[in-house]
Design a protein around this nucleic acid. Structure first.
Length: 490
DNA sequence: GAGATTCAGGGTGCCATCCG
DNA sequence: CGGATGGCACCCTGAATCTC
């Protein structure tokens, strides 16, 4: 990773005195930056408008550090009762507010509000940036804030205690670079370009959310509309049933589980299952080098797969034994304590060798490679759907660390949807399209948004990745004053 | 040798208290 | 009362070890 920190070889006594007698090394480091920059405080106002929650008995859309997706900056608030929010005072939020986490900012907790919700509020651990003080593009600013360059800077003003937090007095030291004539004969165009890329990323993220929702709805509708005769009725389990399941834990006997299970069993088109021998466990190779110079394989573990089932290709590995990802396959998370209820066990991703290259996955994942690409994609859509998240949550075993073993997965029943319905669902998840041609600054966003609507979730996710890389490169060129060719391809 | 189980310790986010 | 500060509790995961 690139670094912009300049570490001095020596520090003068006067400088330590000037710095409130702080010896912390990070306070005496500096950041490399170009000639044209401004301080963040000069660019945008911090909004401190608060809402008191005392005696407010209603629901709020609450944003805390964890609500920010650290890879994309997308914010998803949680609906909470006022009584379940731990503090009495929260920040009031509006659309297009930029939020920066004051705590462990190096994790990338920087996001932008993209929705108009009523009663949208934020925890006090976030800084709310709203009104611009200068005539700059807000999305350009947000783009800079999202990059490694800015995040590295925040490290210089973090209080390195047990709980690293941004010092509010030094908040005015953060620098924001702007393009100059060295970068481009028309620096404004670079700003616009970055703003466009940032908005494109946000739009793609929005589309992923939307398509996931559509898939959920399609699955539920198809199941509910095509039921065989008979209706669901719930009763407590009999001893014979418990003997048959050989399990005492209640998940399998819950109303919620039984209801979904019935819906699938009673589906007109019947069901299919994945035979036990199709599941293959992964491993951590004995001899390994992580993130080596000459990268050979992608490294895949449950943490590198998002909650929506998208692989984030970042870690690499070299090893002397044979790798286990050389063909397209389904990767299923079999063990995680996330969510506490096991609802994240069974999150599935598509590993496409063409997109990611050769790889190796660890024991936290099972792979299935024997089906056709289309069948694989359909299974992935089902497993990542809302209904199957609930099912897996009920089936998973364990008090703290929830898990489903291959046997549990082999017992899962999948509805046999007609081909046309399967196609409709798979099309939302996986649909590639030619990249847009003839893009220019004016039409970029408009044309991209049209294409984003048609693209599959898998492709949207991949493109978000390459756009982010592009953003990093652009900011790097601004900071190091290199010439920038405005190129719309990614 | 594959899969199941256990282990250690860093990472993370919330909460209580202090202070003006 | 609102904001600042310090600290705790437990979440979470990769991989070593165990078992069949």
């Amino acid at each position: 990773m690139r670094s912009y920190i300049i570490k001095p070889k020596s520090v003068k006594k006067s400088e330590i005195i000037k710095n409130d007698y702080i010896f912390s090394a990070s306070r005496h480091n500096n950041i490399q930056i170009n000639s044209n920059f401004d301080y963040l405080v000069n660019l945008i106002k911090i909004s401190k408008k608060s809402v008191s929650l005392t005696n407010q008995k209603k629901y709020f859309n609450y944003v805390e550090i964890g609500s920010i997706n650290t890879t994309t900056g997308y914010i998803e608030p949680t609906l909470k009762k006022s009584i379940d929010i731990s503090t009495d005072s929260v920040f009031q939020l509006e659309k297009d507010d930029i939020l920066i986490s004051t705590v462990r900012t190096y994790l990338g907790g920087i996001g932008i509000i993209n929705q108009k919700d009523q009663y949208l509020v934020a925890s006090k651990a976030l800084i709310v940036l709203r009104e611009l003080k200068k005539d700059i593009n807000k999305y350009y600013l947000f783009g800079i804030l999202r990059t490694g360059f800015f995040i590295e800077q925040t490290n210089l003003i973090l209080n390195a205690s047990m709980y690293p937090r941004m010092d509010k007095d030094s908040f005015d030291k953060l620098k924001i670079p702007f393009p100059t004539n060295t970068n481009h004969q028309n620096p404004e165009k670079v700003e616009n370009h970055i703003s466009n890329i940032v908005q494109n990323i946000i739009d793609k993220e929005e589309q992923i959310k939307l398509k996931n929702k559509q898939i959920d709805e399609l699955i539920e509708k198809e199941l509910k509309e095509k039921q065989k005769a008979g209706s669901f009725s719930y009763r407590y389990p009999k001893i014979s049933e418990i003997r048959e399941e050989t399990r005492l834990d209640t998940g399998l006997y819950e109303r919620n589980f039984k209801e979904i299970d019935f819906l699938i069993r009673n589906y007109e088109g019947g069901i299919f299952q994945i035979p036990l021998d199709k599941f293959k466990s992964g491993s951590t190779p004995k001899v390994r080098v992580f993130d080596p110079q000459n990268k050979k394989y992608k490294w895949v573990t449950p943490t590198l797969i998002t909650d929506q089932g998208n692989y984030q290709p970042s870690a690499t590995i070299n090893m002397d034994s044979k790798n286990n990802l050389s063909k397209d396959c389904i990767l299923i998370i079999n063990r995680t304590s996330k969510g506490k209820k096991g609802e994240y066990v069974g999150i599935t991703c598509f590993y496409e060798v063409n997109s990611f290259g050769l790889g190796q996955h660890n024991q936290g994942l099972y792979q299935i490679k024997d089906y056709s690409k289309f069948e694989k994609l359909f299974i992935i859509c089902l497993l990542n759907s809302k209904l199957y998240r609930k099912l897996c949550g009920c089936i998973s075993i364990g008090s703290k660390m929830k898990e489903m073993k291959s046997l549990d997965f082999a017992f899962l029943k999948f509805p046999n949807f007609p081909d046309s319905k399967q196609k409709e669902i798979v099309n939302l998840y996986y649909k590639s399209l030619e990249k847009n041609k003839n893009l220019n600054i004016e039409n970029y966003l408009e044309i991209e948004k049209i294409r984003n609507r048609k693209l599959g979730i898998f492709q949207l996710n991949l493109e978000i990745f390459s756009l982010q890389e592009q953003l990093e490169t652009l900011v790097h060129k601004i900071v190091s004053e290199e010439y920038i060719e405005i190129d719309f391809a990614y």
